[in-house]
Amino acid sequence: MTVTDDPVRQQASREATRWLILLQEESDDPEISAEFDAWLAAASVNREAWAQTEKAMGLVARLSPGNTSSWCDSTGGGVDMLRQPRRRIPKRAAWTGSVVALAACVALFFTAPSLLLRLRADAMTGTAETRVLHMADGSEVTLAPGSAVSINNKDGRRSVTLLAGEALFSVVHDPAHPFVVKTGNFTTTDIGTVFDVRRTESGVDVAVRSGRVQVSGGSILAQGRELGAGGGLTASVAGFHADERSAEQVGVWADGLLVANDEPLGQVVARLKPYLSGMVIVPSHLSSQRVSGVYSLTDPGRALEAVVQARQGSVHRYSRWLTILR
């Protein structure tokens, strides 16, 4: 369903979800069926909400519970309660079992990575959450949403490992004790600066607001690469690319802003994802279109809509776990 603040549509969507469950539990009750038909005929918004609910859940109206299957593959831990031979299970129990199995799969999918990170991290943030860490030397680390770090201050060292996400570092320079940020195979060393580091799927993205840093890692940057204010560098095991960026725009997410400068829409949405719940799917034809603009992160949902509408697209949210762009 399209993301909207319309309370009528929101109410219709909630009612459609309740009808979905009720019809599964009481599919043989003629009174329930009559009430549902009356609700459906009462308003076009109800029919729209029901059509979207059917599509989202992969069900058809009044589908018999005996024809449904477990929503989680049994090899992945789901309980296929509706296919066990020689055992008759009440409709309510079967439907409830499928819902529980689905909930367990969804919960595991979204929480397992977080649990693993929590074991390694000294500090981390959740969806749409930022956090400022004050170091003993006066330096500050601002964590972006969905980020995690571990900190090593032993024996005079000043080392932070970025385990996930992105962080803005405002460092008190100390030549005798360099401030080092480790991201996978890459290391960013402060030379008196404010800089941003973002962990990517294949490597690291570094941008400098003021001062200088040195980025090194593996054979790609074995000799290191220095960046000054406005300098940027994207590196992976396959290679690296240095570029110039607007220094005043580095780390502006810490001020609640997202800036896009003629960037592929897919990359902009990827930067928004830590502020949004669940999965966001972007079709390839839409992902490659370029957008520019300044968007407020105080309302990530509206920011996503604005980014997509700039390319005549639309946002469809099917649950808190799934959003599809069209």
Rank of each mutant, 00 (worst) to 15 (best):
E140W: 07
A112S: 14
A247K: 12
D137F: 02
L117M: 08
A107K: 09
G217I: 11
R320E: 10
T75M: 11
S216Q: 10
P65C: 04
V149C: 02
T53P: 07
R209N: 09
I220N: 05
Y275G: 05
Q24C: 09
R92G: 09
D155Y: 07
L227H: 06
S147Y: 04
L162P: 00
T111V: 13
G211E: 03
S147D: 02
G239F: 04
A38L: 11
R86W: 13
G138M: 01
P65M: 04
Q267M: 10
R92V: 15
S277Y: 14
V132H: 00
D299H: 09
G266Q: 03
P65Q: 03
L119Y: 12
T188H: 01
R14Q: 13
I89D: 02
L163S: 01
E226Q: 14
S292Y: 01
A303C: 00
T130E: 06
Q52M: 15
G58P: 07
A51W: 07
S139M: 03
A123H: 15
D262G: 06
S210M: 03
T188V: 13
R131H: 14
V99E: 15
S139L: 04
A104Q: 08
L59E: 10
D28G: 07
R87F: 12
A303N: 07
S150A: 12
L119P: 03
V269K: 02
G278Y: 10
M135F: 08
P264Q: 02
A94V: 09
S98N: 15
F240K: 06
S74T: 14
L63W: 10
G251W: 02
R245L: 13
G224H: 02
I281T: 10
I220E: 14
G165Y: 04
G218A: 04
S170I: 09
Y295G: 06
P178I: 05
Q11W: 08
R326L: 09
P90S: 11
L221I: 05
V213G: 00
L297A: 03
A128I: 03
V79P: 04
G313D: 04
S74F: 09
S33D: 14
S69A: 14
V268Q: 06
A49P: 00
P65Y: 10
L162D: 01
A144S: 11
R158I: 05
V252I: 08
E226P: 11
G76L: 13
A144T: 06
R62V: 03
T189V: 11
P283E: 03
G266E: 01
V45M: 07
S246R: 15
G138V: 00
R86G: 12
P90N: 12
K91Y: 11
A254F: 07
E305T: 13
A222Y: 09
V106F: 03
T323W: 02
A103E: 09
I151W: 06
L272D: 05
S13C: 10
L119W: 14
T17E: 13
R245N: 09
G78W: 06
T323I: 07
L143A: 03
V8A: 13
R199F: 00
R302M: 05
R320D: 15
L119C: 06
S74P: 10
E140Y: 08
L227A: 08
E35H: 15
G97L: 07
M1A: 14
G278W: 02
E244Q: 15
E35N: 15
R290Y: 01
I21S: 13
Y318T: 00
A93G: 05
G228F: 00
D155E: 15
V269H: 07
G239Q: 05
S114I: 13
